[in-house]
């Protein structure tokens, strides 16, 4: 499953970053930050054709020995980044897409909060639990509760 999920604002500053492994948060922050390079490049090329504009999923940005990093950019230039473990080879492209779609919906709900000021950090319990769900962390909690 995803080990890190991030929402990047249109000014390329982080709006929300969640890692499964908080001890290595710094490392993930750097990874996500560097992946913006590739997102930016893809968005620049993508602008050229009308068909590509509708496709928000940017595919895999890059992979390292340990991780695969996927990107997604909304029409308002909000970027979503999901880091997956490279060892998890079973995850298909479509599943990653689904994760992004869920994340996008959760994000849209979070920013629809009338008290949310665009450009601020996202601090929403519901969004947080949606992210946890995508990362597969929430399921565990439920199990424990049962």
């Amino acid at each position: 499953m995803a080990v890190c999920i991030a929402v990047i604002g249109k000014d390329n500053s982080p709006k929300y970053i969640k890692c499964t492994d908080e001890a290595n948060a710094l490392q993930f922050h750097y990874k996500i930050h560097t992946s913006i390079d590739i997102v930016e490049e893809k968005l620049n090329i993508g602008n050229k054709t009308a068909a590509d504009v509708r496709e928000l999923f940017l595919g895999m940005l890059y992979s390292t020995e340990e991780y695969k990093i996927f990107g997604y950019a909304t029409n308002t230039k909000i970027k979503f980044i999901i880091v997956l473990q490279s060892s998890n080879a079973t995850l298909r492209d479509n599943e990653v897409r689904m994760m992004f779609r869920k994340l996008h919906i959760a994000y849209a709900n979070a920013v629809s909060d009338p008290f949310y000021i665009p450009g601020d950090q996202i601090q929403s319990k519901i969004f947080n639990s949606a992210v946890m769900d995508i990362m597969g962390l929430l399921v565990d909690e439920k199990k424990i509760l049962k």
Partner: peptide, 10 residues
Amino acid sequence: SERWPVLLTD
């Protein structure tokens, strides 16, 4: 300038 507080702190 890109306002990444964690990285800035590091």
